[in-house]
């Protein structure tokens, strides 16, 4: 198991290096930053001085090595636009996105999994049909449309929930949280539903399919033939066996929630990383874009590693150590 984790970590490092290379390439292919930072009338000497002070006159491999070295220490340089360290900008926006993604993930799990189990076990009930139909809508409706419709209903017509922003936030150290104020919590509702809807329906449909699959297996039939209680068959025996694919997809979904937050944050003017990224794209603010790319990739890699480790707790067949020990006796 340790060997497996080390192997996975090395793979993760490789992935991160590739992503770093891509984000580094952004600098050289999306226009000359010096041109963007200076005016047309500035003297050439100033431009060259700036180029040298930013290290842009050095060979590409050395520039890349410096980029990686700095990135590892959390230094992504200075935003072209805001003239602030990129890491500082990101740290300001990070809590907003994380809280949004956290609530959206909770919705996806605590609505998606029970709904999936229910529709698998009570296939013919009217509620299941309604959920199945509803999930089709959820899976096919684009995020921005969901957001706009929710704003229309709850902010414009009913006037019960705010249509943009985070509301009031409370600072705990460098982390600003919206969980502790009423307006902060109210502001979270619409964006997190918007963001989580797709994942909720995806997880629901996945759990349903996996449950139906497992219910057909011999060991479930054998469990029934032993007269075990329905509750135990459904949850202890069946649901547990659906967990490996469910955990995989859930992990990938949390990653894509972070990535898809861009759209939701734009619709709700949510002051998170996604909005920062969209603004950076508009301003050709390459350091911010590069940092966003690397950070998102990092989160994907970390989540995938966590999922791989979770497999060991779910499926004993992967814990090879004991199998080797007892293999001699079988």
């Amino acid at each position: 198991m340790l060997y497996f984790i080390i192997q996975r970590m090395l793979q993760s490092v490789l992935v991160m290096l590739v992503v770093a290379a891509i984000s580094f390439a952004l600098f050289s292919y999306v226009g000359d930053p010096i041109e963007a930072m200076t005016g047309e009338d500035d003297p050439i000497e100033l431009k060259q001085q700036l180029r040298a002070s930013l290290g842009l006159d050095q060979p590409i491999p050395i520039q890349f090595a410096r980029f990686v070295g700095n990135a590892v220490q959390g230094d992504f340089g200075v935003s072209y636009r805001a003239r602030q360290p990129v890491m500082q900008l990101i740290a300001e926006r990070f809590p907003a996105t994380m809280e949004l993604v956290f609530v959206a993930s909770l919705i996806a799990l605590f609505v998606g999994i029970p709904a999936g189990i229910y529709t698998a076990l009570r296939r013919d009930s009217p509620v299941s049909y309604a959920l199945q139909t509803g999930s089709l809508i959820g899976i096919s409706m684009p995020t921005f449309l969901t957001g706009i419709l929710l704003i229309l209903v709850f902010s414009v017509w009913l006037k019960v929930l705010p249509s943009f922003g985070r509301g009031e936030t409370v600072d705990i150290g460098w982390w600003s949280t919206g969980f502790l104020t009423v307006s902060g919590l109210k502001s979270l509702i619409l964006p997190s539903i918007t963001l989580g809807l797709f994942s909720t329906t995806l997880i629901m449909r996945l759990v349903r399919t996996e449950m139906l699959e497992v219910m057909r297996t011999d060991y479930i039939k054998f469990a029934r033939a032993r007269g075990l209680r329905d509750r135990s068959i459904n949850f202890r025996h069946a649901f547990k066996n659906t967990l490996v694919p469910v955990v995989t997809i859930t992990g990938m979904q949390v990653g894509s929630l972070i990535a898809f937050a861009i759209i939701t944050e734009t619709v709700f003017q949510w002051p998170g990383l996604g909005l920062l990224f969209i603004q950076a794209v508009g301003n050709v603010d390459i350091p911010v874009m590069a940092a966003y790319l690397v950070l998102t990739a990092l989160m994907f890699v970390v989540i995938n590693l966590a999922v791989d480790i979770l497999y060991f707790f779910i499926d004993p067949r992967l814990r090879a150590d004991r199998a080797v020990a007892s293999g001699a006796t079988t």
Partner: peptide
């Protein structure tokens, strides 16, 4: 009927490789 199954009638299935739940000891 659930109480009859297992209590009064036992069943043995064909394929021992798939009859046992892989996740429980």
């Amino acid at each position: 009927m659930r109480k009859v199954r297992g209590r009064e009638i036992g069943a043995i299935f064909q394929d021992p490789l798939t009859s046992l739940n892989p996740l429980l000891t």
